[in-house]
Amino acid sequence: MTGFEMFWPLVAHVFLVFCLYALLVLRRSQVVRSGKVERIAFRENLAEPEESRVVNRSIANQFELPILFYAVSILLYITQADNLVAVVLAWFFVATRCAHAYVHVFGNRLHLRRPLFGLGFAALFALWVWLVAWMAFS
C-alpha cells in the first residue's frame, strides 16, 4: 500500500451519513409542510411520522456497527496491516452499509436488509481477524 487507501472507505461512509442527514431534513420538512406533524414534535422527538423516523433510525444504524469499522481501519493503518485485501474488505463493508441504508429508507424490506447486514458484519469480522492475526504473527 502506498498511502491512504484504507481511509477512502471511511470517507465514503461519512458521505453516506451526510446524505442520510440531508434526506432526514428533506423528509421532516415535507411532513411539516403537509401538516402531518408540528415542528415541535421533532424537538421533543414525539410521534415522528414514519417517513422521517425510518431515516432517523437509519442514521442511528450508521453509528452502531460502523464504530468498529472506524476503529479497525485506523488500527490497520497504524500497524501497517492495511493491504489490498483489507482495503477491499473495507470497501465491501461500506458498500453493504450503503445498500442496507437504501433498502432501509426506501421500502424497509427486511428480507433484503438482513443479508446485507450479515455480509457487512462478515466483512467487518474478517477485518478484525486480519488485524489480530497481523499483530499475533508480526
Rank of each mutant, 00 (worst) to 15 (best):
W134A: 12
V72Q: 00
F106A: 12
A12T: 06
A41C: 14
E64S: 10
F117Y: 11
N83I: 00
L68C: 04
L68E: 00
V25W: 14
V129Q: 08
L24S: 14
A95V: 10
Y102Q: 07
Y21R: 14
A86G: 07
I74S: 02
L10N: 01
F125I: 09
T96D: 07
V11P: 07
E51R: 08
V55I: 11
A101F: 00
F63D: 11
V54F: 04
W134I: 01
A95H: 06
V85A: 10
V105F: 02
G3S: 15
F117L: 05
E48L: 12
N83G: 13
V25P: 04
F69Y: 05
R113C: 02
R113F: 02
L75S: 08
V55H: 02
R43L: 13
V32L: 06
S52K: 04
V55F: 03
Y70N: 02
V17N: 08
G3H: 12
Y70I: 04
I67A: 10
A81V: 05
L112N: 03
G3W: 12
N61R: 10
L116D: 05
V17W: 05
F42T: 13
F4Q: 14
F42M: 12
V87S: 08
A60Y: 11
R33C: 07
V32G: 05
Q80P: 02
W91D: 08
K36N: 11
I40A: 12
L75W: 04
F92Q: 02
M1D: 12
V72N: 00
A12R: 07
N83P: 00
A90S: 15
G118Y: 09
V72K: 00
L127P: 00
P9T: 02
